[in-house]
Computed example of a mutant assay.
Amino acid sequence: MISALDCDLRPGSGLGIFELGSSLWNTLDLLRRLQHAFPHADIKYDQDASSTTPIVVHIRPHLDLLFSGKQQRLHTIVLRKLRHGDPPVTLRYKDTVLSSPDNVLKRVSVSRTFGPTYPPPGDDLRADLRYPGVWFSFEEDGMGDGLKGIQSEDRMHEVKRVIVSQKELDGEDRDALGEPVECPVMDGDISSAIVKVHEGVDLYFHPVSTAQPVNIRLGETTAQDLTIDLGPPSRVHYKEDDRMTIHSATRPTDSSEAAYFYNYFQHGLDFLLSSNHVVTKIVLHSNIPGSPLFQRYKRCNWEIESTPEDDEDDTPPRKRFYDRFETISHFLSPRDPPPSMLLDRTDDEEAMTLPSATTRLHGYDGIILEVSESSQVVAVMLF
């Protein structure tokens, strides 16, 4: 463990190594690579709505990172226990040391560094100081209720928490559970993936205003196309598991005709390529907390698109990753859901134990849904 936590404050942008707008997948991967500096991290979420729940990553003892529910993007950073806990904290702003083991951050110090600011509407007795992109609180937890009635002109109040969020452009408070606005750290990430059954997927990237979609087509797109459009894969995995061929109505192909996967963990995508290097299957992952594949893949914000009901309809109907299985199933087929297969991804992971380790595979014409016990679709496969 490091002997001290030294971090720079960037209002509206980030704190230390953490950048607002970063994905949950990238952040947890960063923490995994820096276990010597951050050995204790807890992930908290609502198990009843894990596909859309905001996620809090608590890095003991000083940091709370709040990620948005749908895009899984870093929304808010909270730095607490400035004067307590191990390791000690040094907080800097530009060339100024705001807080350290030898410097107590007080109200007067904040005012000297950042200047005057407006009081929160209706809370003129509160001691909190809010500036664009950063908020200084004078109590350990809560939103300042314990300080009501204490006159805000007490210059010696000690800062207990520092909260960093994106700056407001319209003067209104940002939704604490909303989505971060698009920012440079998102550039190159997939903003949405439009799934078209029997065809393929259209990938849209950040920045949304300038990027052209990448069209991946079943039976047409080649391995070379993927490398040109998406870059080299994170991993190339040769398909060795042929257990599903027992359910095939046709005779299994010769195993010498090796198929292989291109794994793009950073995009939440897998592509199965045939022996002649053409895409035959596409897998899109939802990265749902508590599922066996959580954090192996970044969340892919997929939407299944159907044909418009009439020629004048410019907005084809879609179902999204956070819709419940029953809703998506009826969208794909109005009849009763097809028979399902039980899948336990922990069968090959003896050390892994999860409260909901099993999922079910529901097959439709051209598409398979992998569904959790709580009716959340954890992955989509096109074939």
Rank of each mutant, 00 (worst) to 15 (best):
D347G: 06
G171K: 02
P180Q: 03
P132S: 03
I55N: 07
V108S: 11
D336F: 06
Y364P: 02
T96N: 07
Y131N: 01
I163W: 04
I163R: 07
H58C: 09
L82F: 02
D313Y: 06
A211G: 10
G171C: 01
L343D: 11
S23L: 04
S191L: 07
N287S: 15
P87C: 03
G178S: 06
D189P: 03
A41V: 09
R174D: 10
V89F: 02
A37V: 10
T280L: 08
R33K: 15
Y118E: 11
L82Q: 00
Y204I: 14
A193C: 05
S51Y: 11
Y297V: 05
L9W: 00
D225N: 14
L15G: 02
G200Q: 08
Y93K: 02
L361W: 10
P213H: 06
F136I: 01
L226I: 04
S275E: 10
I367H: 00
V208M: 15
N301H: 14
R155N: 07
S340M: 09
E220S: 10
R174M: 14
P308I: 09
L269K: 01
D145W: 09
S333N: 15
P39N: 06
D313N: 14
K298F: 06
L66I: 10
L382R: 05
I17S: 13
D175L: 08
F18H: 04
S3L: 15
T96Y: 08
Q295E: 15
P339F: 05
F38C: 05
Q47R: 12
L203F: 03
D64L: 05
P213D: 05
R324V: 08
A259T: 13
L28N: 09
P180R: 01
S23Y: 01
H36G: 10
L24K: 01
S340R: 13
E19W: 08
L15N: 03
R10T: 08
E349N: 15
A127R: 12
D86M: 09
E305R: 09
A351W: 11
V195L: 02
H285G: 04
T250I: 11
V134L: 00
Q266C: 12
W302I: 03
S329T: 02
L361H: 11
R32V: 07
I55S: 08
D6C: 09
R318N: 05
S165L: 13
Y131D: 01
L63K: 02
G14T: 03
G149N: 03
T227H: 12
F67I: 04
D242Q: 08
D175N: 08
D8E: 15
E303M: 13
A193D: 00
D314V: 08
E139H: 02
Y260E: 01
P316R: 05
S274T: 15
G16C: 00
Y322I: 00
K148E: 11
P338Q: 01
L5W: 02
R10W: 02
E326N: 15
T221E: 07
F325W: 03
L91D: 01
M244F: 15
R217K: 14
G85F: 06
G85E: 01
K44S: 10
F321I: 00
V214C: 13
T96P: 07
E179Y: 04
Y264L: 02
H247I: 07
E182W: 05
H198R: 12
V78E: 14
I246D: 14
T358D: 11
